[in-house]
Simulated scan of single mutants.
Amino acid sequence: MDEQWRADLERWSIPEEIAARAPADPWGHSSARFAERTDRALAAPEGPTLARMAEALPPGGSVLDVGAGTGAASLPLAPDLGELIAVDVSDAMLAELASRAHALGVPTRFFRGRWPDVAAETPVADVAVAAHVVYNVPGLAGFLAELTGHARNRVVLELTGQHPMSWLNPLWQHFHGITRPGRPTAHDVIAVAEGLGYEVHHEWRLAPLPRFTRLEDLAESACRRLCLGRERADEVIAAVIELDMWPVPRDRWFTLWWESK
């Protein structure tokens, strides 16, 4: 199942001839935008992912947040959190997380790198979480095994039901004549985890906020993801209207969890 996952994920790669013309990294993320999401999560902490983490976290316990970003998945647990262990590849993301953790009084240790490459140097925690990370992980079985090995009580994942770039599929066809794949999905993640022997529980909900509130924001993001220059934003907006893509439907967010002991 892990090989199937790897093959399905590989089909999401951008053809070299298109990527070569990209004016900006099509896979890049804005730490400022991630920080806004974290601030919203801190202002109104809710949702099944947070609940599944909280019920497995002892008072003053520790959380390992892999692909932590700016801390949206873990920092809302601050009142009960004795230590946060944050892993991420981005210095900018970890800097945003550090400032918020300091303001909340959460002791934090940082490990810059890709999981599971840095697993050997990362301590065990009571709860391990990876939120909106797995679609960037070709070797999913090894990723999940190390995550489980670093959790005393529970592993929690949060992810979209389909690849997070699936909303762009009609635009890939429109601008590049490319049909994007339908897999992998959250159910494939479940299959990989169950193949490792974990008793996986799951639930889903609609994403708490729309992906975009303005067409202009959609166009800016789409231009980057589609390897188009910003000067083509009006073309993107016209295509979105023509293809009846606005407003963009909210994603389904899945929460997966299993006990690690």
Results as ranks from 00 to 15, higher is better:
residue 184 P to W: 08
residue 82 G to T: 04
residue 127 V to E: 03
residue 97 L to H: 09
residue 184 P to A: 04
residue 76 P to V: 04
residue 138 P to D: 08
residue 57 L to F: 04
residue 214 R to V: 12
residue 33 R to P: 05
residue 164 P to S: 08
residue 191 A to T: 10
residue 134 V to A: 02
residue 168 L to C: 11
residue 9 L to D: 05
residue 64 L to S: 00
residue 78 A to K: 09
residue 179 T to L: 11
residue 213 T to D: 10
residue 11 R to T: 13
residue 9 L to P: 00
residue 179 T to P: 02
residue 16 E to Y: 12
residue 241 I to S: 09
residue 128 A to Q: 00
residue 86 A to C: 11
residue 218 L to I: 06
residue 127 V to D: 07
residue 144 L to F: 04
residue 256 L to A: 05
residue 238 A to K: 13
residue 190 I to C: 05
residue 230 R to E: 15
residue 163 H to M: 03
residue 229 G to K: 00
residue 12 W to R: 10
residue 100 R to K: 12
residue 173 Q to C: 06
residue 68 A to N: 04
residue 181 P to M: 08
residue 211 R to I: 02
residue 103 A to Q: 11
residue 49 T to P: 06
residue 84 L to E: 05
residue 221 S to W: 14
residue 134 V to Y: 00
residue 144 L to I: 02
residue 159 L to F: 13
residue 12 W to L: 00
residue 249 P to W: 07
residue 43 A to V: 07
residue 58 P to L: 03
residue 135 Y to A: 06
residue 18 I to V: 14
residue 158 E to N: 10
residue 110 F to C: 13
residue 102 H to M: 15
residue 62 S to C: 03
residue 204 W to H: 12
residue 214 R to D: 15
residue 154 R to S: 06
residue 118 V to I: 14
residue 24 A to H: 09
residue 119 A to P: 05
residue 63 V to P: 06
residue 1 M to K: 10
residue 150 H to G: 05
residue 209 L to C: 11
residue 59 P to S: 13
residue 126 D to R: 00
residue 8 D to W: 14
residue 119 A to G: 09
residue 190 I to V: 10
residue 70 T to S: 12
residue 136 N to P: 05
residue 23 P to L: 02
residue 52 R to K: 12
residue 24 A to R: 15
residue 73 A to T: 01
residue 90 S to C: 01
residue 37 R to V: 13
residue 210 P to M: 07
residue 147 L to Y: 01
residue 42 L to C: 04
residue 121 E to F: 04
residue 4 Q to F: 14
residue 238 A to T: 10
residue 178 I to V: 14
residue 208 P to M: 07
residue 186 A to F: 02
residue 253 W to C: 12
residue 134 V to R: 02
residue 234 D to Q: 13
residue 215 L to G: 14
residue 177 G to R: 02
residue 10 E to H: 14
residue 18 I to C: 15
residue 69 G to T: 03
residue 112 R to I: 15
residue 129 V to P: 08
